[in-house]
Design a protein around this nucleic acid. Structure first.
Lengths: 199, 199
DNA sequence: TTTTATTTACGTTACGTTTCGTAATTAAAT
DNA sequence: ATTTAATTACGAAACGTAACGTAAATAAAA
């Protein structure tokens, strides 16, 4: 099978147009919220035509996810030291990030996303599950360092630590704040057999 | 088969909405021309929603035809007297009517219309062929009165009298004016054997 | 008779695509 | 090397429909 050359004939796609659309999408998400993120609104604010927007993203939902990934702040520095310090720092970072306007729009975007979409999977991995993976790595390191015994079911422990963050984000029944993060970590450490009782 | 009662349940269609859309369509045709008669433009000017417009007319073309029929001025009084007087008066009326903004939009609307549409047939009959039918009746009356012998082919004679009006309307290569109307009638009368030569 | 439920039309907004004229590229012709 | 042709993307405007909340009617229930 001959090796196909990339299609370079004709007018090249405009990176500027794509950037303008993403920027407008971020602005609308921050200023007006996920519900007002529509293709018409992005086209109006950015000056990018709707055909061009549809050439880059399948629908408004995928554009929202792309915009939110694009606007992600730099990854926070990992804490060093004991497991409790590292875990608390990491969970505190996630809680702080989600307690922002961007965090709330992330929750809405994910809730509204098409489950089967590859974009949704990428978005979920990048924005939601990446924190959980850091948690897994942190636990593994603590086991190797002999700080704790290997948990019986790491997946469940990770869910019990990270799911409540997302839960409060979406439901909003109780505050998603530093107190909640501290309590969550304390309970998580207890689960891991690294709680205060063990001194 | 049981006799079905008209559907009177629910919110009745609004005659006011329909009238407002037609009025806006007439205004756009007169002010901006047939090419600018779009569903979006009519909706914007009239305040009638697009779903409501589409509930009344299939597309912009049909709306244009409906608007032009609606705005037709009252039928002119038929002339009495000799064939030449009656025919000249009628053709002069048609030429005068077509030489207006409305006349020009009629021509464009018909040219752009879907040939298979019942609306197009109704429009053609009402606005174009009705003049031709009056011509046919005028010729019939002249034959009965002994003013002329029965033409060999009435259809061709009618086409030769009325087609040039429509032709000048659409093509615009020469003026559609009273001189043209007079010349057309003179030639037509000659065809009918009722020309000046016969005194 | 009055109130509530049901049905159908309304306008707004958004959706996603099509058409059109123009722009930006590469390929072919000169 | 330059010019012309062909290809592909661009934005504006229009298309025609769907979803939604509201309005205006009639039918049913109380």
């Amino acid at each position: 099978m001959s090796q196909d050359k990339p299609n370079t004939r004709g007018r090249p796609p405009s990176k500027a147009a794509r950037s303008k659309a993403l920027k407008a999408a971020v602005e609308i998400l921050m200023d007006l919220g996920f519900g007002r993120l529509t293709i018409d609104a992005v086209a109006a604010r950015s000056g990018v035509g709707k055909p061009t927007i549809y050439r880059n993203w399948a629908n408004a939902s995928e554009l929202a996810m792309a915009a939110l990934m694009e606007s992600q702040p730099t990854e926070p520095v990992q804490a060093t030291g004991a497991l409790s310090e590292r875990l608390e720092h990491q969970v505190m970072s996630i809680v702080t990030a989600f307690a922002t306007t961007r965090g709330r729009q992330i929750g809405l975007a994910l809730a509204a996303a098409d489950r089967d979409s590859e974009m949704t999977r990428a978005f979920r991995n990048r924005v939601i599950l990446s924190g959980r993976e850091i948690g897994r790595a942190t636990i593994s390191q603590a086991v190797k360092a002999g700080e704790i015994a290997a948990p019986r079911d790491t997946e469940v422990v990770l869910d019990m630590i990270y799911a409540p963050i997302f839960y409060r984000l979406l439901v909003g029944h109780l505050p998603l704040d530093r107190d909640f993060a501290a309590a969550l970590v304390a309970q998580g450490l207890a689960l891991l057999g690294a709680g205060d009782q063990r001194g």
